[in-house]
């Protein structure tokens, strides 16, 4: 409880008020490196998202094949090309998401952000490298359980980190 005088001394007229919508208990951990579980769930959400997308695309493909099979000879897609498509999509998605704000949908859900150790956002190059590393060697995330600073192998190699950032997306867009 502060007096109006105290309030005026810290705020000046016309200054937009910034409201902290993060729960009080979690405010002080913002910016600290996130642990394995949060990151793992986030990755699972991303994978599920891409898998759903690929499956939907596959469903559409099968349907089109069924409809157009009378006129054209469309090849059947087997599991391996689908998996490759999934991997490539995953790579693109992670690269794009980390380079543009450091948050995938999974990250957003779990309140995480990928950034450089210095705190800067990832540029396209490191983002693409990290995404490729994560796609090819997802087990690297397991190192976050052991590492003192919760950093996975790709984090250690590329000097990145994943931190808690529960700031709502809406306040960042303002």
């Amino acid at each position: 409880m502060s007096s109006f005088k105290e309030f005026r001394s810290t705020h000046w007229a016309g200054e937009p008020l910034k409201f902290n919508t993060i729960p009080e208990r979690a405010r002080n951990i913002q910016g600290m490196t996130a642990g394995f579980t949060s990151r793992f769930i986030s990755v699972l959400v991303d994978i599920a998202l891409i898998a759903m997308f690929v499956l939907c695309a596959y469903g559409l493909w099968v349907f089109m094949r069924y409809v157009l099979s009378v006129f054209y000879d469309i090849p059947q897609l087997s599991g391996v090309p689908l998996l490759i498509i999934g991997y490539v999509l995953m790579w693109f998605y992670w690269t794009w998401s980390w380079a543009t704000g450091g948050k995938t949908l999974g990250n957003l859900l779990m309140g995480l952000r990928v950034q450089m150790i210095s705190g800067e956002s990832l540029s396209l190059g490191p983002s693409a490298l990290r995404a490729l590393f994560s796609v090819v060697f997802p087990v690297g995330l397991g190192w976050a359980i052991i590492n003192r600073n919760n950093r996975s192998i790709q984090d250690v190699l590329l000097r990145t980190q994943v931190v808690y950032d529960w700031t709502p997306l809406a306040s960042k867009l303002q």
Binding site: R25, A26, I29, M32, A34, G35, F36, T37, S38, I41, L109, M110, G111, I145, I146, R148, N150, W166
Partner: peptide
Amino acid sequence: LRFQALETDNFLSTVVDRVLFRKKTRAQEL
């Protein structure tokens, strides 16, 4: 969901930090 993940992280990191004889666990810092 976020707090539960946080608690799980704390539990997991505490176990690992104790096994590795770390003086201050990550959970304590958090």
